[in-house]
Computed example of a mutant assay.
Amino acid sequence: MSLWPVYTGTSDPHDGIAELPAPPPWRDFDGGPELATPAEDGDTSAASPDRRHRARAYRATDRAVQLVNAALYLRRPLLVTGPPGSGKSSLAYAVARELRLGPVLRWNITSRTTLHDGLYQYDPLSRLYAAGRAAARDLPADGRPAADGQLPASGELQDHLRLGPLGTALLPYGRPRALLIDEIDKSDLDLPNDLLNILEEGQYEIPELVRAARQTPSAEVMIDGTDDRVRVSRGRVRCRAFPFVVLTSNGEREFPPAFLRRCVRLELHQPRDAHLERIVRAHLGEPDAYARDLIDRFLARGTDGELATDQLLNAIYLTGAAGIDASSRDDLAEQLMPYLSRTHDEPDAF
């Protein structure tokens, strides 16, 4: 029985990821002890209604299915480029849902984001304040501090440190976690290069814990998105199953060749024709005559400027609402589908 593809794009959850073949020798990781994957996002309250719906309704192209599987088999990040509204971030949620990879770890990138932000956050001031409050509360009767000079328990390092989305994704889970690094093209110029070693080696260190390892060999550290804790030994983290990493880009900048060659690259376009109808049907059910007319008009208008699929979905949903008279529908639909950009300068047609 063929194991390809593991991700099918059908949106039906399954455990095929457990049958994923062994990685290439140069991408084989051995972190441990093995951690269980958290409960899947599925229909739990941990996921927003928007993300749950988009994960269920996402319809992948054949090319997307092929390249998602290439990234899974090769244990490589997937760099997804495309215009706004083409489904770049939704792809990560759809794959996580189908393959039961647990809640998606999301890292939103800005021009001020650093690698450290994605790995972990440490607040030394809160630790110092906590230690001071505990010391004042526990001061001996003679008014003198303890002779050993140690921080009180509430000043423990682990209580003021939390792993970020990238740091959490690289924990030694038994099956890959899904990590969405959203809008990597908005980052500082150095961030893609800073990511190279982490994504290549599948491991990192937390210097604060490494320095404390002689007195505290292991620490219970909070992870991203929850108050759950995991044990980190001697400040070092190494993955076991390389995470399914999706980096999204609107194509606004070029990336270094060294970064690109370590990624599987997928370019998404705005859906057309039958694929667009499949998307509408997945979100809103079978389109009626007016919805089909809107689809045709959307496709025709897309040759003159950039439109996003969610603009069409909004127009179909709202113009089908009860109480909107026929004379108002066309004007409303046009207002809901403005151009995001144009291929040439021209005045608004509507």
Rank of each mutant, 00 (worst) to 15 (best):
D41Y: 10
I206N: 11
L78S: 04
G118T: 13
A131N: 09
L195P: 08
A47L: 08
A141V: 13
Y120F: 10
E220Q: 14
L340E: 04
L166Y: 07
H275N: 02
A321N: 11
A308S: 09
G16Q: 13
L163W: 02
N250K: 02
L151E: 02
S89Q: 12
S154W: 15
A136T: 04
E252D: 15
K186F: 10
A22Q: 08
A326S: 02
T37D: 01
V80R: 06
P172L: 02
D185V: 07
R236I: 09
R177D: 03
Y317D: 08
A315M: 04
D348S: 03
D15M: 06
L72V: 12
G9A: 11
L189A: 14
T309Y: 09
L170H: 08
D148N: 07
L195F: 15
G155D: 13
D194M: 04
R75M: 08
A333K: 13
R261E: 15
F29I: 04
A136Q: 12
R51M: 05
L276E: 10
P5A: 04
L74A: 06
P77L: 12
I295L: 10
V6Q: 14
E286P: 00
E98C: 02
V264M: 05
S48D: 07
P24A: 15
L157V: 15
A178E: 09
T248M: 03
P338K: 12
D15T: 06
R106F: 01
Q335H: 14
G225H: 05
F350P: 00
V237P: 11
A47I: 03
S154G: 11
G323V: 01
V95T: 09
W26L: 13
L79T: 03
D288Q: 11
F255Y: 12
W107E: 06
L67D: 00
T37N: 07
M337N: 05
R265S: 06
L336E: 03
L74T: 10
G305H: 14
L180P: 07
P83S: 01
Y122C: 09
E40G: 11
A131D: 07
T110G: 02
P24N: 15
D148T: 12
G132W: 15
T81I: 09
D273K: 07
T319G: 11
E334N: 01
R278M: 09
I109Y: 02
R56E: 08
P217M: 06
R301L: 06
L78C: 05
L299Y: 05
L115T: 11
R261G: 03
R292I: 06
G118E: 15
L151W: 13
E277F: 01
A22G: 12
L266F: 11
I295M: 12
A135S: 15
V264P: 03
H275V: 00
L294N: 07
T248L: 02
A60R: 00
F244W: 03
V237M: 10
L196S: 00
R253A: 07
S249P: 00
L299R: 13
S327G: 04
